[in-house]
Lab assay of single mutants.
Amino acid sequence: MEVRTIKVFTTVDNINLHTQVVDMSMTYGQQFGPTYLDGADVTKIKPHNSHEGKTFYVLPNDDTLRVEAFEYYHTTDPSFLGRYMSALNHTKKWKYPQVNGLTSIKWADNNCYLATALLTLQQIELKFNPPALQDAYYRARAGEAANFCALILAYCNKTVGELGDVRETMSYLFQHANLDSCKRVLNVVCKTCGQQQTTLKGVEAVMYMGTLSYEQFKKGVQIPCTCGKQATKYLVQQESPFVMMSAPPAQYELKHGTFTCASEYTGNYQCGHYKHITSKETLYCIDGALLTKSSEYKGPITDVFYKENSYTTTIK
């Protein structure tokens, strides 16, 4: 009895394709271990004539594949690729409408935090270190965002349907971005203890939790000093293409032309909904596939993004 075979390709990165001759009487799992086709788990399936010449994702289970996976995804987590594939199996079914010149995501599976993050990423200057993220990001900007969303979920250790947080998501993504040249110098002034300067680099240099107003941050924000008295913390120097200011959701007025974009969060910790506000020729609110415009805006804002380049204080 002759062994019926077909020729397929296996890959971990969709760049390096490895030619395989597979036995049609055995499952993919018996031949390769966990195997995925377009995100779908085909591990328990036997090869079919229609699979001839198709590319299958496999887990990096030998040295060659491990090197290829690390170079593309910059992670050695053995569960990463499987999590990416199972997320992709959902995100490829989502709709990605162009809204006001940006790629958004039609609401499904509690994905409003991903839509808000995706919209924000198209408006701030950011370059990702893992080629996987950078490639998928370019495709997302062009309207094909399924891979990018699935990668975000995998890097953030999230599953489809789980509630997510924009600030946490951005923080994970910033860790995989090139923020080497970003720098922030802060000064804390206390009447009792004097003053202390701190220099922050990388992710810490672009994120701040405690106030939404970048102007206020430049002037000074009140913080408790270690001595128990009130101290003032203010920005001395900022070198970065953008800054992200966050605070627990509270009524906040966004003035046209003073910011790049913002995240609105309605609801409580267990259950809520994100919308995205962007400042173009007027203010726009993007909620999944829905767009509304207004000249002014007041609502429960939790993150505001500002364009920056270089700032030095005039406070002496």
Rank of each mutant, 00 (worst) to 15 (best):
L200D: 09
L118V: 06
V188W: 10
S295V: 12
L119R: 03
Y214W: 10
I223A: 13
A69E: 03
M244L: 05
F259T: 02
M244R: 00
T76F: 14
A40G: 13
A40H: 12
L291Y: 11
G164F: 02
Y284F: 08
T159P: 09
K158H: 04
L17A: 08
V3D: 14
I152W: 03
L17R: 10
Q30I: 11
G272K: 02
Q20T: 13
A262H: 00
Y214L: 12
Q196Y: 14
V22E: 04
S294T: 14
S79I: 10
C190E: 05
S86Y: 05
R141S: 08
Y306G: 04
D23H: 08
T192L: 09
P300E: 15
F259L: 00
A142V: 11
Y155Q: 02
Y137F: 12
D13V: 00
A40C: 10
L114Q: 03
C227W: 00
T27R: 09
E239Y: 08
N16W: 07
T282K: 09
T192D: 15
K307H: 12
A231K: 06
Y252Q: 09
T19H: 11
Y36K: 02
N100A: 13
Y265S: 05
T11W: 05
V58K: 06
H276R: 00
H273D: 05
L283M: 09
L179Q: 01
A87I: 08
P34D: 12
Q237H: 15
Y269R: 15
G220M: 02
R167E: 01
T5C: 13
T313N: 15
Q31R: 12
N147L: 05
T211Q: 07
Y72G: 05
L59A: 12
Y72I: 05
Q222L: 12
V58N: 04
K275F: 01
Y113M: 06
Q196N: 11
N147H: 13
P60V: 09
T55F: 05
T27S: 10
L37N: 12
K54N: 13
R66C: 10
G101A: 02
Q270K: 12
A177W: 01
Q30V: 11
P300G: 00
Y284R: 03
V22W: 06
G299V: 00
Y297F: 10
H273L: 01
V243C: 03
W107G: 02
V189T: 11
T314C: 15
K233M: 15
C225H: 08
L119A: 01
G272C: 03
Y113T: 06
P224G: 05
